[in-house]
Nucleic acid binder design. Structure first.
Length: 155
DNA sequence: GCCAACGTTGGC
DNA sequence: GCCAACGTTGGC
């Protein structure tokens, strides 16, 4: 099993929204590095730190789980979609999604500043300056440390 | 609102 | 194939 961090702007798609939906496909990723991870590396059962970006403060909010491995992003084929890609076709898809379902909130959210302040998280991608990848691999040790910083899983 | 970081595009 | 221009991300 692998561990990941996925960023979402809470105004766009918060963890609460995921809970309300029960499950979602993670559409709209248009970055090749992130695409490759979703297409090639993510497997059902993998655990995900659900990170809220572009909010004050940015923070890890919850844990989610991959519920379906990578498959072509349906939004790339639809001209009415924001994420339509004219260079993609069902025969030659460019972009991939995974399905995600909620596991649980952390008892307390963990702000980015706290992640940066924890020496045990040295090397974690999300705390690096200029790191914009919206899907990132996370070491198990780092994953467990972040969950512990959040007081464990709620409920 | 600013701007650093960085990925992508397109002219040459 | 280089690289300048441009667009986006996302913290601050």
């Amino acid at each position: 099993m692998r561990y990941w961090l996925m960023k979402s702007e809470p105004d766009v798609y918060s963890f609460d929204h995921l809970v309300a939906d029960g499950e979602t496909y993670w559409d709209g990723v248009r970055n090749y590095q992130a695409r490759n991870m979703m297409r090639d590396d993510m497997q059902p059962g993998d655990r995900v730190l659900y990170y809220h970006s572009n909010t004050k403060p940015p923070h890890v909010a919850a844990v989610a789980e991959i519920s379906r491995a990578g498959y072509p992003d349906p939004t790339q084929f639809d001209p009415n979609e924001k994420y339509f890609d004219p260079k993609a076709s069902p025969e030659k898809p460019r972009w991939y999604v995974v399905d995600l379902k909620p596991v649980a909130r952390l008892k307390q959210t963990v702000p980015l500043a706290d992640l940066k302040a924890n020496p045990a998280l040295e090397g974690m991608l999300v705390i690096k300056k200029g790191q914009r990848l919206s899907v990132q691999p996370v070491d198990k040790e780092h994953f467990d440390a972040v969950v512990a910083m959040g007081g464990g899983l709620a409920g």
